[in-house]
Design a binder for these strands. Structure first.
Length: 273
DNA sequence: CACAATACCTGCTAGC
DNA sequence: TGCTAGCAGGTATTGT
């Protein structure tokens, strides 16, 4: 489910309560989530370590830890339904809890994930660096410029929607925000990247940055509520995603949907060419 | 190589 | 009411 703004919101929500905490015990309640790493080994390594910095890269949540031996980083990917929540009592945890990091006072950080597609991995700093090197630039960083996007686009024959969702090109966009960015820029999702010219490239860059900034702002506020997510509410106002058959908010044409890369894409046939 | 299909999972909903 | 097909905000792997 979560894309960059939701992952950012989760980081901000847990940061205050998690940073600096001692992990008294770690329990992996669903062994598959650590594959190909061993869940028993993950539990053993984490126990007795202290949580350092919590940060994010693309859709990866990164939790630094220190203790016996070298520093390790816990990398959590929420995939479709994952979430991280701080619990007052880590023994009273919901059925979808997949990992529990319990602190000395019995409170804890809990990874919930109904579909169990999310992943938890423990890395050395060197290992983490090489994994993150596979990701494209952060769209809200200085790295992500119009010039960079123009250069990346000119070398790419992919349809625009697939380009935006490819984490090795830009890190953090997913199905919803990619669709929304293309709508805002007036670009058809099937448009080949290398056929885009300058005013459109600029519009796409501006749309990505604008939408993600606004979504982070709105979503981060909502995610302070610990139970948030589970509900169907989507706080960022969506203009095309999920609106098949409804009128375009700009021109009134019926929003259409198509399949791309096995996923549903929504677009306005008149505004997006 | 690029691209498409499928596997991974559970839960919800629309339609019968 | 109860069943089922289809679909879900993601990504790694397999197949063409």
């Amino acid at each position: 489910m979560p894309e960059l703004p939701e992952v950012e919101a989760v980081c901000r929500r847990i940061r205050r309560g998690a940073e600096g905490q001692l992990i008294a015990s770690a329990r992996i309640l669903r062994p598959g989530i650590t594959l190909p790493q061993s869940s028993a080994e993950t539990e053993e390594t984490l126990a007795g370590r202290r949580i350092g910095k919590v940060w994010r890269r693309g859709k990866n949540i990164l939790i630094g830890t220190s203790g016996a031996g070298e520093d390790r980083v816990l990398r959590i990917h929420l995939r479709m339904t994952g979430n991280l929540v701080l619990f007052k009592d880590a023994r009273l945890v919901p059925p979808a809890a997949r990992m529990v990091l319990e602190f000395p006072d019995r409170s804890g950080l809990v990874f919930t994930d109904s579909r169990a597609l999310g992943r938890v991995h423990l890395h050395s700093l060197a290992e983490l660096e090489s994994i993150l090197a596979e990701l494209g630039p952060e769209p809200l960083s200085r790295q992500f410029t119009v010039q960079w996007l123009a250069a990346a686009a000119s070398a790419c024959g992919q349809p625009a929607k697939l380009f935006l969702m490819d984490q090795s090109r830009i890190a953090g966009l997913g199905n919803i925000y990619a669709a929304e960015a293309l709508f805002q820029a007036g670009i058809h999702p099937g448009k080949r990247m290398k056929t885009l010219r300058m005013p459109k490239i600029g519009a796409l860059h501006a749309a990505i940055v604008d939408i993600l900034r606004r979504a982070v702002k709105v979503t981060a506020a909502e995610y302070r509520r610990p139970g948030y997510w589970g509900g169907e509410e989507w706080d960022f106002p969506l203009r095309v995603y999920g609106r098949k058959g409804e009128p375009c908010l700009v021109c009134g044409s019926k929003i259409r949907s198509m399949r791309q890369g096995g996923r549903s894409t929504y677009y306005c046939p008149r505004c997006q060419r």
